[in-house]
């Protein structure tokens, strides 16, 4: 499903973000990537989305080598990966519905499929009543649920969540985690980068810990870490 082989990433300014990282995630897994700031967590997500190319090593997403994609192939990789970010990244002038349906317009889905699927996904994230709202009329948690709906509307293989609860209060954060678990239960692989110790500890999922660009721990049913 997702494989990183001996990945090293050195940025142009000489900063070594990742050193010889090996990671294999199977279909349907739920994986937390944890670690202090600057450990290389964000670099991992950027490499998977082909925003950056690794200096060394190979990345395979869904049986396809993606570390040397041509620029025009990158959009098709990203359609297989749903993404959610700490800052939601919604279109400010578009309604909830438009934000979600955009992802389907991008893949040129039939209008009928869009009309059927969008309400379905909005119901899944509990926003059926707010389909016509604009993002600024929603709370942070609701905005993140819109982003989640957009990420899964095309039924991607992988959901990549980069600190999805980073801007949310604990109760709201748990609401997001519930949805992520639902999505995972339906078969989507979930990869979540986070700092939220309480969430990681409570969920008892696979935990991959990064430190200074290396994987220092990879445990199933793991916790955030001893130092906390």
């Amino acid at each position: 499903m997702l494989e990183l082989y001996a990945i090293t990433k050195i940025y142009g300014n000489g900063v070594v973000a990742l050193r010889d990282v090996n990671l294999k995630v199977d279909k349907g897994e739920f994986v937390f990537i944890v670690g202090p700031s600057g450990a290389g967590k964000t670099t991992v997500t950027r490499l998977i989305l082909a925003e950056e190319k690794p200096t060394k090593g190979q990345i395979i997403v869904n049986n396809k080598v993606v570390n040397n994609l041509k620029p025009r192939e990158i959009p098709f990789l990203r359609r297989q990966i749903g993404t959610v970010f700490q800052d939601f990244r919604l279109m400010p002038n578009w309604t909830v519905e438009e934000n979600v349906s955009f992802a389907m317009k991008v893949v040129e889905a039939p209008t009928r499929a869009i009309r059927r699927r969008v309400p379905e996904v909005l119901a899944l994230v509990g926003l059926s009543s707010k389909a016509k709202h604009l993002p600024h009329q929603l709370s942070g948690g609701e905005q993140q649920r819109v982003a989640l709906a957009r990420a899964i509307v095309n039924q991607p293989y992988i959901l990549l969540a980069d600190e999805p609860t980073g801007n949310l209060d604990p109760d709201t954060a748990w609401g997001i985690m519930d949805i992520l678990q639902d999505i995972n239960a339906q078969g989507t692989t979930v990869l979540m980068v986070t700092h939220a110790k309480n969430i990681v500890d409570a969920m008892r999922k696979r935990v991959v810990a990064l430190e200074a660009g290396r994987i220092v721990r990879d445990e199933y049913r793991g916790s955030y870490g001893d130092e906390n």
Partner: peptide, 11 residues
Amino acid sequence: IMKYVGATDWF
């Protein structure tokens, strides 16, 4: 944002 969702440059 469009590029994250997988929109091509022409789109």
